[in-house]
Design a protein around this nucleic acid. Structure first.
Lengths: 221, 221
DNA sequence: AAAAAGTTGTCACATTTGTTACATTTGAAA
DNA sequence: TTTCAAATGTAACAAATGTGACAACTTTTT
C-alpha cells in the first residue's frame, strides 16, 4: 500500500535511481501514526516538510466555537505543509488528523533547502505545488463566499458528478455539513429544495442529476 | 510618491546598485492605470509578476450572485500575483481594481525565473512571500469560518484596536459588510449588540473598548 | 439472521440575517 | 456658513439557518 517516492509531486520527473542518490545526500526521518492520531496541531511551528506515503489524513480548522471546518482530505502520496514552510509566521493553520494508519517522510526545512540546490527540478516542483496550494485556498475562499447553501451544494454536486448523470455521494450529510460549515438539517433541506426544483433526484446517497444546466444556474444564487 | 524598488519585498536585502545591475539583465515593462480601472480580471491567466510601485488597489472576488467579497487592500510597495504564478491552473482568483492612479512594473514569468538564477536572495524572498500569502489566505478562511457575525466583528475590532482603548474605524459599515460578506444593517446590529453587552462604546466611527477580555471572549461565539 | 451503529427524512420552534425603507447625523464641498 | 452627499441608526417584516428531537431507513458488525 505504500507508494513509491517518485510518485510524490515534489519528486516529479525524477526516476528512482536519481531520487535515491539525491535522498542519500540529506537527512530525513520516517514517522508513523496510528488511526485517529493528531499528526499536527493548529498553531504548531511548521519547520519541516511532511510527505504522506501511506494512509489518509484530513485537515480541519478548529473554529473558535470548538466546531471544526473540514478543509480537505488527503491520501498518499501527498505533501503537507508545503505552503507554510517559508512564511513569516510559519505555523500550521490546521489540525491534521490520521484517518487510517499513516506513514510519513519528514524533511527538515534546512534539508529541503539543500534539495533545492541539488536539484533544480525539485525547486520547480516545489514552486508549482505551493502555487497550486494557494489556488486551492483561494477556491475554498470563493466557495465560502457563496452565500446560499443551495448554491454551495449545487457547486459541490457539479464537481462530484463529473459529467455523470447518476452517482453515489462520497460524503454523508454530516460530513457535508462540516464542509459547508452549516447545520446538518440544513444540508437535508438544501437537497430537498433541489429536488423540489426538479433539478436532481436524490435518495440517500444515490444522486440523479435531472437537469445539469439548471444545476449550473443554481450555483449562482 | 513612487517608491524605491529596493523597498519591495521581493528585492529585500538588495541595494539600489545591485538591483539596477540585476534588473538590467532582464526584460520588464512599466504599466499605468487610472483610478477605477480594472487592472486584472478574475480568471485571467497569471503569467507575470506585477509589482505595485505607486498607488492603491483592492482585490475582490466576485461571487456568483454578482456581489463581491473584498479580499484585501494593497498599496505600494507590494507584489501581486506571486502565489499564483507557478500553479497548475495559473489564473487570477480575484479582480484587481485601481483605487487611485497606479503604476506597476510587470515581470514575465520567464524573466522571473532568470532572476531566481541570478540571485539566490530573490528566490528566497519569493519563497517567503508566497508562503506568507498562503498564510494570509488561510487566515481569511478561518475568519470566514467564524460563524457568528458578532464574533467576526469582535475579531476585527481586536485587530484594529491594537492595544488602544479608543480609536477610529478605518472602514465604513458598508465596507465592513463587504469584508464580512453580510448585509449592512447586520453590521450595525452587531455593533449595537456589543454595545448592549457593555463590551464597547461606539458612536459613528469612534470606538471605545470598555472590556477587552470580554471582547476576546466574544470572538469565540 | 439479528443486532448495533450510523445515516437520513422530517418536524417545530428559536435565532440570525437579509431586505427595504426612512430619518438622522456626520463630514466634505461649495 | 450653508449645502449636500454619504454614512449611520433604526424599524418592520421576510427568509434562511440553527437547534433539538425522533422515527425510519441503511449499512456494518456480530
Amino acid at each position: 500500500m505504500r507508494v513509491s517516492l517518485s510518485t510524490v509531486s515534489i519528486f516529479n520527473g525524477l526516476d528512482e535511481i536519481a531520487l535515491n542518490d539525491i535522498l542519500s545526500q540529506i537527512i530525513f526521518q520516517r514517522k508513523s501514526f496510528s488511526e485517529g492520531a493528531l499528526v499536527v496541531s493548529q498553531g504548531e511551528e511548521c519547520n519541516r516538510l511532511m510527505i504522506l506515503i501511506e494512509g489518509k489524513v484530513k485537515g480541519e480548522m478548529s473554529s473558535p466555537t470548538g466546531k471544526s471546518l473540514k478543509i480537505e482530505d488527503m491520501e498518499a502520496p501527498s505533501v503537507l505543509a508545503s505552503a507554510f514552510l517559508f512564511g513569516q509566521n510559519n505555523t500550521f493553520p490546521v489540525n491534521i488528523l490520521a484517518e487510517t494508519e499513516v506513514k510519513f517522510i519528514v524533511i527538515p526545512k534546512t534539508e529541503l533547502l539543500k534539495l533545492f540546490q541539488i536539484s533544480d527540478r525539485i525547486l520547480q516542483n516545489f514552486l508549482s505545488m505551493i502555487s497550486s496550494r494557494a489556488q486551492f485556498l483561494s477556491e475554498k475562499l470563493r466557495f465560502h463566499s457563496f452565500k446560499a447553501l443551495k448554491a454551495k451544494l449545487s457547486f459541490y454536486l457539479m464537481n462530484e458528478s463529473r459529467q455523470r448523470e447518476m452517482f453515489k455521494l462520497r460524503h454523508s450529510q454530516n460530513e457535508l455539513s462540516e464542509l459547508f460549515a452549516v447545520a446538518r438539517p440544513s444540508v437535508g433541506r438544501a437537497f430537498m429544495q433541489l429536488q423540489e426544483d426538479g433539478i436532481i433526484d436524490v435518495r440517500y446517497k444515490q444522486v440523479h442529476i435531472l437537469n445539469r444546466s439548471s444545476l449550473a444556474l443554481a450555483c449562482n444564487e
